Computed example of a mutant assay.
Amino acid sequence: MFRMCTDVTAPDAKAKTNGSASIVRDADWALNRQEPESQERGPYSLASDEAILEEGRDRILDIAEKYIRHIGHRKTTVADIASDLGTSRANVYRFFPTRAAINNSVCARIVEKVTEIAFSIARTDAAASKKLVELLNILHRHSRMTLMEAKPIHELFVAAMNENWATMNAHNQRIRAILEAIIRQGLQTGEFQVEDADHATRGVITAFLPFFHPVLLEQRVQEGEDIAEAAHVQIRFIMRALGKSDWRSAEASEVMISA
């Protein structure tokens, strides 16, 4: 049904995709530019060409994400994307060599939003304990909401984890680095009482993994567990393990997950 609604053979659909097709055509022209011509037109032309290319990539990913959210990444094809854009599959392949590369890039776009939130938490002036609890909550809440409200994206994340996609690995490394920075802050201020920040970070990730790893979280939900309460309990355990026995009376308690 969704595919029929986006059939570009309909006059209205053609009108809607004119802008997208133009963007991709312009970007394709920039890809085909010869180097000597680029040099003659100067550095500002090169910058302009790069902007056109970036806009073309973004438009392709916009359409790809729309399809993935509706029918899932396994059913979305390059032909779907090209048809919606009013261009050819060959033009889409000029930007992304495979459908897997498109899936990878869509995944990167979505998890980047989580990374940005994590960075914003780490940059605040709050106590390390509050930052840590808030970050754990964000990781859990995002995974839980994706599972419950955006199943096709959850399935994309499951594939990314199971198939070891580079973008998901990079995201996990960034989150790990943010967690470690927060724990180091807690050590420096005396909030946390652990010997090594690196080991403590590994311990926190291992302890909380079942509450944000897409596969493990889904298993717990399927088993009928009260996942919000379980996350509360696990955060209490983590904070006590870090030596924050009075965490419930600290600012950190203000950002606990709603039951």
Rank of each mutant, 00 (worst) to 15 (best):
Met1Gln: 14
Arg3Phe: 03
Arg3Leu: 12
Asp7Arg: 10
Val8Pro: 14
Lys14Asn: 02
Ala15His: 06
Lys16Glu: 13
Ser20Trp: 07
Val24Phe: 04
Ala27Asp: 01
Asp28Phe: 02
Asp28Tyr: 02
Leu31Met: 13
Ser38Met: 09
Glu40Lys: 10
Glu40Trp: 05
Arg41Asn: 12
Gly42Trp: 04
Pro43Met: 06
Ser45Ile: 00
Ala47Thr: 13
Asp49Phe: 03
Ala51Val: 11
Ile52Cys: 02
Glu54Leu: 09
Gly56Glu: 02
Gly56Trp: 02
Ile60Asp: 05
Leu61Ala: 05
Asp62Glu: 15
Ile63Gly: 01
Ala64Pro: 03
Lys66Arg: 13
His70Met: 12
His70Ile: 14
His70Arg: 15
His73Phe: 13
His73Ala: 12
His73Ile: 05
Thr76Ile: 10
Ala79Glu: 13
Ala79Ile: 10
Leu85Pro: 07
Leu85Gly: 08
Gly86Phe: 05
Thr87Arg: 10
Ser88His: 08
Asn91Trp: 00
Phe95Leu: 02
Pro97Val: 06
Pro97Phe: 00
Thr98Val: 07
Ala100Gln: 13
Ala101Gln: 10
Asn103Tyr: 01
Asn103Val: 08
Arg109His: 02
Ile110Ser: 01
Val114Thr: 15
Thr115Arg: 13
Ala122Gly: 01
Arg123Phe: 02
Thr124Val: 09
Thr124His: 03
Ala127Met: 11
Val133Ala: 13
Glu134Thr: 15
Glu134His: 12
Asn137Phe: 02
Ser143Met: 11
Leu147Asn: 07
Met148Trp: 01
Glu149His: 15
Ala150Ser: 15
Ala150Gln: 14
Pro152Gln: 10
Ile153Thr: 14
Ala160Met: 08
Glu163Pro: 01
Glu163Arg: 11
Asn164Ala: 11
Ala166Asn: 09
Thr167Asp: 12
Met168Trp: 08
Met168Gln: 13
Asn169Ala: 13
Asn169Leu: 09
Asn169Asp: 10
Ala170Asp: 14
Asn172Phe: 04
Gln173Thr: 14
Arg174Gln: 15
Ala177Glu: 13
Ile178Phe: 04
Glu180Leu: 06
Ile182Phe: 01
Ile183Arg: 06
Gln185Phe: 00
Gly186Thr: 06
Thr189Gly: 04
Thr189Val: 07
Phe192Lys: 04
Glu195Cys: 03
Ala197Glu: 11
Ala200Asn: 07
Thr201Tyr: 05
Gly203Gln: 08
Gly203Ala: 07
Gly203Phe: 02
Val204Leu: 12
Thr206His: 08
Thr206Phe: 10
Ala207Gly: 03
Ala207Val: 08
Phe208Ile: 10
Phe208Arg: 03
Phe211Trp: 10
Phe212Arg: 11
His213Val: 04
Val215Gln: 12
Glu218Ala: 15
Glu218Ser: 14
Glu218Gly: 07
Gln219Tyr: 06
Gln219Phe: 03
Arg220Ser: 05
Arg220Leu: 10
Ala230Trp: 02
Gln234Thr: 15
Leu242Asp: 11
Gly243His: 08
Gly243Phe: 08
Asp246Gly: 05
Trp247Met: 05
Ser249Asp: 14
Ser253Glu: 08
Ser253His: 12
Met256Asp: 07
Met256Arg: 14
